[in-house]
């Protein structure tokens, strides 16, 4: 912190608003390249529809990353919950019961992962890597490696628009605002920052680290569960290989939004803008007709640039 104040202040201002600056640059590019299509009402709905799942995953991931952890298992968990949700609906359970069960299951799995990390003191990377493999395996076993179809229109209400905005986008916005309040205005939120900022100091200050960590991972699990419901509504089936690679999209959104992978530094608004950035980038590339594999290359470059910008001040610290 000390060295940053010595640097010219606009770098730190820039770092703070990195997600916003990145998004502004992207929108400017869109304005030049594909203006009439990109800034149309139908594309507005399109962006919001595509934003819900990665947006929710990124909000959950922000909690985990702020504690100094990481969760590689969210893609697999989403795939498993997608299968559970589809199977329950096909088996004839009521929609509210299914939604409740999926949300509780997701939260529980998240809490278990957080608890496991706290108790064993293993690195979150390793624990969630193992969870990523196992949960994907469960999804295959649970469905006998077959897609679950025949849901009908039971989850269609999640896609229906209200005031021109699809319900799934309202859900995402509501959870994002809740997360914002939790991190800014609650004791738990301050503890999350404290844990990621300096674990040693947080322990000496008497912060209940285990509870905070379990809470952060549980919130992440809840966000994954909400995302899996929207995912199921959009796909109208359960697929054991659903959500492969989603964890990387979520981490990318968080990082592009200016949250430090070291923990303790960042915020939800940045994450929201980061997720919006990724979705808009994807859409822009499709509208411009850029080849899929070329797009992957550009996305990688964007991540590198974002992380580099974050690291400028911190490199000086060490």
């Amino acid at each position: 912190m000390r060295s940053r104040s010595q640097q010219s202040s606009w770098i730190s201002i820039f770092q703070k608003y990195q997600g916003f600056v990145g998004l502004a640059a992207l929108l400017a590019a869109a304005a030049i390249l594909v203006r009439p299509q990109f800034f149309s009402a139908s594309n507005f709905a399109n962006i919001l529809n595509q934003l819900a799942v990665p947006g929710l995953l990124a909000v959950g991931m922000t909690f985990v990353i702020l504690t100094g952890g990481i969760d590689l298992s969210v893609g697999s968990l989403l795939g498993l919950l997608n299968c559970v949700c589809a199977t329950w609906l096909v088996a004839g359970h009521s929609t509210p019961a299914t939604i409740t069960f999926v949300l509780v299951l997701g939260t529980t799995v998240g809490a278990c992962i957080g608890g496991f990390i706290s108790i064993t003191k293993m690195q979150p990377f390793v624990v969630t890597l193992a969870a990523m493999v196992s949960l994907r395996g469960f999804a295959y076993v649970y469905t006998n490696n077959a897609n679950v179809s025949g849901l009908g229109d039971k989850l269609d209400f999640l896609l229906a628009p209200h005031f021109g905005v699809p319900t799934n986008a309202w859900v995402m916005l509501a959870i994002t605002i809740l997360a914002l309040i939790v991190l800014w205005r609650t004791v738990f939120g301050r503890y999350v920052y404290a844990l990621g900022g300096n674990e040693q100091a947080a322990r000496y200050a008497g912060i209940p680290l285990t509870k905070v960590r379990i809470g952060a991972y549980a919130i992440n699990g809840l966000c994954v569960a909400a995302a899996s419901l929207i995912y199921t509504a959009r796909n109208t089936n359960g697929s054991p290989d659903g959500g492969v690679g989603f964890e990387l999209d979520a981490i990318t959104a968080v990082v592009v939004g200016g949250t430090s992978l070291v923990g303790g530094n960042g915020n939800i608004i940045g994450t929201f803008l980061g997720a919006l950035f990724i979705v808009c980038l994807n859409i822009l590339l499709v509208l411009k007709g850029v080849n899929t594999y070329m797009s992957m290359g550009w996305k990688g470059i964007v991540i590198l640039v974002a992380v580099y910008l974050q690291s400028i001040g911190r490199n000086k610290d060490s």
């Binding site: 299509q37 139908s42 594309n43 529809n49 595509q50 796909n235 994807n282 499709v286 509208l287 899929t292």
Partner: peptide, 12 residues
């Protein structure tokens, strides 16, 4: 999920 997104964006 990619194909869903691509088709939706094509419609724009």
């Amino acid at each position: 999920e990619n194909q869903n997104n691509i088709i939706d964006t094509f419609m724009v």
